[in-house]
Nucleic acid binder design. Structure first.
Length: 808
DNA sequence: TAATTCGCTAGACCGA
DNA sequence: TCGGTCTAGCGAA
């Protein structure tokens, strides 16, 4: 029989057991026929043994029995970074894990390697195929004969079906409880449109609203929904907080109703999987993307800037749309009365449609990360940067025939955590107003140092390059000049891939599918690029090297200081610098061209891969003093020649300050920088104070936002946000680690904490005007106005106080 | 289960 | 009541 050749997109991978009882890989691939399951029955789990000598371990391995079986194979393999390496293959993953403990104690065994790599990850690494990438395969009756990655690109929006669902539940004056409260409606959206399933009473005489299907009861509604998902058969199934709410709710509800929640391939029911402290719900044969988790990750990666993560806020920031929240009381009232049910359905449908739209925007980026790391999107959207970098390196190590380092033991992790090192250099700014400021910075400073000086754990302090200058770090450690380091070589690959993608973008039409795909690619590469340095000093990292991380920052300090010195010699006045950037004040007569010439000169003296770039020229800038005196680092504001304001570090960019303080600060900065009018700036501040005194400032301008970083009980100091959270919990609100709190300082109470209440429990007008004046608006503006000669008193009482002299 | 260091500010808490 | 110390959070790079 000639195997059938098929091309498709790898959607999901899992493992199971064959009829004969060995472990096998199961792949779910989107082909022309839909999602199909293929089985690779030939791939087997394995790990490596590094032996003192091959002969020395032979006897022990020969006699090794796991559950009565010998290993399937013991073979010598060549790895570039170790001698005497044996690959030991097992029938099942279970046998592998039992064997781990026995083999490590065998005589002549130095260490085990790659024994903790999940079977599916192992498969994708070895086969070199990335999830959501295109694959070519040959099979007989869905049994794989061959599979390989295809060069052809995947366009998520065109090639994949993306479905999204959301449920509305009944909650009579408390949080919905799946044991007793029914699901009222379920909305589902895919590329073809949306549908809302519901049940129960209602005034349907006029016919059901468009796009709504009314079923006889809740069980029938859920069945219809499950049927719809299977008919649509999405590759990616999107929820908003599905991990935390929709999935577990549906599961438990279905158990009670006796309905099959089989939305996975072949009717498989999603089951909880532990992801850190929380549960996640994988859906077999598809990728469950929880857009809420995704937004949190993107926020951490700096790909988006979000203050709150509720759907309404995210829609506002990402899609620029106003979306109204239908609160639980309204839903219950409408449901109970049976009047205006359309509002629930519209709300339900809108949730899925906007969630889907947000997901569509970032799926190309996640898909790129997924392909780069060869991890499922399900994982990629829920992990941290450390895991991403490690996954990418594991793939590269395999390709380069390098053994992957083991994860450190817990004791080693603890020891590593106690070791610290020096970071970047931050120069104290010259406080006050400055004019004509040029900003220059090093392009990808840390990665470029790693490339320029071959910084890698295995090139550190090599025997062959002692005493050589080129890669001798200021820390006195050095890196090999002959052998190319694993990490710098990997970074070079990513760097050039990104340069390539950006070059291709120039030829693509803006906003075309191709352009967006390339943008996602370069963005994913950028994220990876920027994550390497941090992980070097990360205690759980397989390629941890404190000395390498320390060398990188030592070099960064060296190069930035050198650049500052050079700028001074070139006739500029350096006023500030932070890690990779220099702020240069241009003296009279110097122009942008002089800066460009300076940048060229510096670049001609830098090692390969390092580059100084011209960032921009600014008309004016302000640096302020700290509250406790002395120049403040990491807070400044600039304005360019197009009057565009750039505010850095100030309260304006912080979420834990009220809107009124932030907006007042921005207006003050603008008046100072744009118009050069200090009197106007002072008036703006005074106006805000008067407004607060008037008692009419709306809640939205007063909320302060912070996030719970640990369980409430672990707090030693009870600040306002914790006090507000405790009061809310006493009222029945559920709050935990990661909860984002919005609170207001109200009138009633002694300390600030006493007066803090979560926004939702505060009536309009109930705010402590003195607090918002003294602790919000004034501190936000006073340091700026102080640079212009104003004092706090000037703001608090009428006009600028006349000095004694002016009275005489 | 966790990428790094540097830096600013607020507010509670404690003792003089 | 004041100032110093400590916890906590968030931002820059």
């Amino acid at each position: 029989m000639v195997p059938d050749a098929v091309s498709g997109i790898l959607v999901d991978a899992d493992y199971g057991a064959s009829k004969e009882g060995h472990s096998q890989i199961e792949l779910y691939i989107r082909t022309k026929k839909g999602i199909e399951k293929f089985v690779d029955a030939k791939f087997r789990p394995y790990f490596y043994v590094v032996a003192n000598s091959l002969a020395g371990v032979e006897k022990g391995l020969k006699e090794l029995r796991v559950e009565g079986n010998s290993p399937l194979a013991v073979e010598e393999v060549r790895k570039k970074n170790a001698e005497n390496v044996l690959k030991i293959t097992f029938r099942t993953t279970k046998e592998l894990s039992i064997a781990r403990d026995r083999v490590k104690d065998l005589q002549g065994v130095r260490e085990l390697r790659e024994y903790d790599i999940p079977f599916v990850n192992r498969y994708l690494i070895d086969k070199g195929i990335g999830p959501l990438g295109r694959v070519e395969l040959r099979h007989e009756n869905n049994e794989l004969k061959e599979i390989r990655a295809s060069e052809k690109e995947v366009d998520a929006a065109r090639d994949l079906e993306i479905g999204c669902f959301d449920i509305e539940t009944y909650s009579p004056g408390r949080m919905s409880d799946p044991k007793q409260d029914p699901i009222l409606s379920i909305a589902y959206s895919d590329s073809k449109g949306s549908v809302v399933f519901t049940h129960g009473k209602g005034n349907w005489e006029k016919g059901t609203p468009r796009g709504v299907e009314v079923k006889a009861n809740e069980a029938e509604m859920v069945k219809a929904f499950v049927g719809k998902v299977n008919e649509s058969s999405p590759d990616i199934i999107v929820t908003y907080n599905g991990d935390g709410f929709d999935m577990p709710y549906l599961r438990e509800r279905c158990e009670g109703l006796g309905v099959d929640f089989g939305i996975g391939f072949g009717g498989e029911i999603p089951k909880a999987e532990r992801k850190g402290v929380d549960n996640a719900y994988p859906v077999k044969g598809r990728q469950h993307l929880d857009a809420y988790q995704m937004m949190r990750l993107l926020s951490k990666l700096g790909a988006v800037n979000l203050v709150k993560y509720d759907l309404e806020s995210v829609v506002g920031v990402i899609l620029g749309k106003e979306k109204e929240k239908l609160d639980h009381n309204d839903i219950n009232r409408i449901w109970d009365s049976g009047k205006g049910l359309g509002r629930i359905f519209d709300y339900n449908r809108e949730d899925t449609e906007t969630t889907r739209e947000i997901a569509l925007r970032y799926i190309p980026l996640l898909a790129e990360l997924s392909r780069l790391t060869r991890r499922m999107m399900f994982d990629v959207s829920r992990v941290s940067t450390g895991i991403l970098v490690e996954a990418l390196l594991m793939n590269r190590a395999f390709e380069n025939k390098l053994l992957i380092p083991n994860r450190p033991e817990e004791s080693e992790v603890r020891a590593r955590i106690t070791r610290t090192f020096k970071g970047g250099y931050v120069k104290s700014p010259v406080p006050g107003l400055h004019e004509n400021i040029a900003v220059v910075d090093f392009r990808s400073l840390h990665p470029s140092i790693i490339m320029a000086h071959n910084v890698s754990p295995e090139t550190l302090n090599c025997k062959c390059c002692r005493g050589k200058e080129k890669n001798l770090a200021p820390t006195k450690d050095w890196f090999c000049e002959k052998e190319k380091g694993f990490i710098p070589e990997t970074i070079k690959g990513i760097f050039s891939a990104r340069v390539g993608a950006k070059a291709e973008m120039k030829n693509a039409k803006k906003d075309s599918a191709e352009y967006n795909a390339l943008d996602a690619k370069q963005h994913a590469l950028k994220i990876m690029l920027n994550s390497f340095y941090g992980t070097l000093a990360y205690a759980r990292f397989r390629w941890y090297s404190m000395q390498a991380a320390s060398a990188v920052t030592a070099w960064s300090r060296h190069y930035i200081r050198e650049t500052l010195d050079k700028s001074e010699n070139a006739g500029f006045k350096p006023i500030y610098s932070d890690t990779d950037s220099c702020f240069l004040e241009l003296p009279k007569g110097k122009t942008k061209n002089d800066v460009l010439a300076f940048v060229r000169k510096v670049n001609s003296e830098l090692p390969e891969h390092m580059e100084l770039e011209f960032e921009g020229l600014f008309k004016r800038g302000i640096f302020v003093t700290k509250k406790e005196g002395g120049a403040a680092k990491k807070r400044y504001a600039l304005i360019d020649f197009n009057d565009r304001l750039k505010i850095v570090g100030f309260e304006y960019v912080r979420r834990d300050w009220s809107r009124i303080a932030k907006d007042t600060q921005r207006d003050v900065l603008e008046a100072v920088l744009k118009e050069g009018r200090p009197e106007r700036a002072a008036e703006i501040a005074k106006a805000a104070i008067e407004l607060l005194k008037g008692g009419k400032v709306p809640k939205a301008s007063l909320t302060i936002i912070t996030q719970l970083q640990k369980p409430i009980k672990d707090y030693a100091a009870i600040g306002p946000h914790i006090a507000a959270a405790k009061k809310a919990i006493a009222r029945g609100k559920e709050l935990g680690v990661g909860s984002v709190l919005s609170y207001i300082i109200t009138k009633a109470g002694k300390s600030i904490s006493d007066r803090a209440e979560l926004e939702e429990y505060v009536k309009e007008g109930n705010y402590d005007a003195d607090y918002y004046i003294e602790h919000q608006v004034v501190p936000a503006v006073i340091k700026i106005l102080a640079e212009l000669g104003y004092s706090k008193e000037d703001l608090m009482h009428g006009g600028k106080q006349k000095t004694l002299g002016s009275f005489s």
